[in-house]
Computed example of a mutant assay.
Amino acid sequence: MSVPPATLYGLGVGPGDPELLTLKAHRILTSAPVVAYPKPDTGESFARSIVAGYLRKEQEEIAIEVPMRVERFPAAEVYEAAAKRIAADLKAGRDVAVLCEGDPFFYGSFMYLFERLASKFPTEIVPGVSSVMAAGAASARPIAARNDVFTVIPAPLEDREIATRIALSEAFAIIKLGRHFMRVKTLIETLRLTGSCRYCERVSLAEERVMPLAEASDTAPYFSMILGYRGAEKAIRGR
């Protein structure tokens, strides 16, 4: 007698605070027999650390080791291997919950498993609180209003591209700062927008730092972003 295939879940676990996990994500997380998550080749998994207090000892864990390097690595091989291992559990009738920092489909690595498995197995995506939304809340300043265009800009883009994206928007978030921080900070100064920007670091964690961009130091971790506003809303510009 064949076993019906189980369900693959992409669980958004939020920006870091375990209390920002949704009720639905918590229900699925605590009931799934298998939990998978990305893990750097050195150090612990951030996604797992967020929900560590909710995991059960009898749950099987699959750590998907993703090298954290500046140079490109064979990511396809990593996700191919992970997909095969997860597929084996799904075929055996065991649901698999894949943990995703923030939201699964917002710059999330889960999309690479999704493209390999979603056409073969029942799949459900559980959205999570993204770091951008959490940063807006932590900075106590609205992100955008009315007809404002809000743009998310990856810091690795070239200066000209970043400046163009900012010019086309009333509100913006620059993410993935890390080693690009000083270059981006200098660019914003050149655009005379420093006074309209907030610097947000490790939002929702105990180490959270939120301040005007002008007060930020010259270095920033990967988990940081700049929120900026150049629109007409006084409720936003005035804060």
Results as ranks from 00 to 15, higher is better:
residue 44 E to S: 13
residue 54 Y to P: 10
residue 204 S to V: 05
residue 75 A to N: 13
residue 149 V to Q: 06
residue 197 C to F: 06
residue 132 V to W: 06
residue 33 P to Q: 07
residue 32 A to S: 14
residue 94 R to L: 14
residue 163 A to P: 07
residue 111 M to P: 00
residue 40 P to V: 00
residue 72 R to D: 11
residue 120 K to M: 11
residue 160 R to F: 08
residue 18 P to C: 10
residue 75 A to F: 13
residue 237 R to M: 12
residue 89 D to M: 06
residue 86 I to W: 02
residue 26 H to S: 14
residue 131 S to C: 09
residue 106 F to H: 10
residue 37 Y to K: 04
residue 91 K to G: 11
residue 213 L to K: 01
residue 72 R to E: 15
residue 102 G to K: 10
residue 7 T to K: 07
residue 187 L to Q: 07
residue 41 D to I: 03
residue 96 V to I: 04
residue 31 S to Y: 07
residue 36 A to S: 08
residue 213 L to T: 00
residue 142 P to T: 01
residue 184 V to H: 03
residue 157 L to G: 07
residue 194 T to N: 02
residue 227 L to M: 03
residue 137 A to M: 05
residue 217 S to Q: 11
residue 117 L to N: 00
residue 182 M to N: 03
residue 138 A to G: 02
residue 46 F to G: 04
residue 75 A to V: 10
residue 162 I to S: 03
residue 191 L to W: 01
residue 187 L to Y: 05
residue 223 F to C: 11
residue 35 V to S: 01
residue 30 T to A: 10
residue 226 I to F: 01
residue 140 A to N: 11
residue 203 V to C: 14
residue 45 S to R: 01
residue 104 P to Y: 12
residue 168 L to V: 01
residue 100 C to I: 08
residue 202 R to N: 15
residue 15 P to E: 01
residue 5 P to C: 14
residue 46 F to E: 11
residue 56 R to T: 00
residue 203 V to R: 06
residue 18 P to M: 04
residue 164 T to S: 14
residue 214 A to D: 03
residue 80 E to T: 05
residue 190 T to S: 06
residue 201 E to C: 08
residue 1 M to F: 14
residue 118 A to I: 08
residue 28 I to V: 15
residue 115 E to I: 07
residue 56 R to I: 05
residue 208 E to C: 00
residue 237 R to D: 09
residue 7 T to D: 03
residue 186 T to D: 11
residue 90 L to G: 08
residue 209 R to L: 14
residue 33 P to V: 09
residue 169 S to C: 00
residue 57 K to A: 15
residue 116 R to E: 13
residue 74 P to L: 07
residue 26 H to K: 14
residue 82 A to C: 13
residue 97 A to D: 09
residue 160 R to H: 10
residue 86 I to H: 05
residue 63 A to C: 04
residue 38 P to Q: 08
residue 85 R to I: 06
residue 68 M to A: 03
residue 31 S to C: 14
residue 55 L to R: 07
residue 6 A to V: 06
residue 3 V to L: 15
residue 47 A to T: 09
residue 24 K to E: 10
residue 140 A to Q: 12
residue 76 A to Q: 15
residue 135 A to V: 07
residue 151 T to I: 04
residue 91 K to E: 15
residue 203 V to L: 11
residue 201 E to K: 05
residue 53 G to C: 13
residue 26 H to M: 14
residue 91 K to Y: 11
residue 80 E to S: 14
residue 156 P to C: 11
residue 51 V to M: 02
residue 225 M to E: 10
residue 101 E to V: 13
residue 59 Q to M: 12
residue 213 L to F: 07
residue 169 S to I: 05
residue 107 Y to K: 04
residue 104 P to R: 00
residue 13 V to M: 02
residue 210 V to F: 03
residue 214 A to S: 15
residue 2 S to V: 09
residue 147 N to P: 05
residue 227 L to Q: 00
residue 196 S to K: 14
residue 38 P to M: 01
residue 229 Y to N: 09
residue 192 R to V: 07
residue 113 L to W: 09
residue 123 T to C: 14
residue 85 R to G: 05
residue 102 G to H: 08
residue 2 S to T: 09
residue 87 A to L: 00
residue 194 T to I: 05
residue 233 E to Q: 13
residue 230 R to Q: 14
residue 8 L to S: 06
residue 204 S to D: 09
residue 189 E to A: 08
residue 145 A to L: 15
residue 237 R to P: 10
residue 28 I to P: 03
residue 111 M to L: 12
residue 221 P to S: 00
residue 202 R to Q: 09
residue 134 A to R: 01
residue 40 P to Q: 01
residue 216 A to P: 02
residue 27 R to F: 07
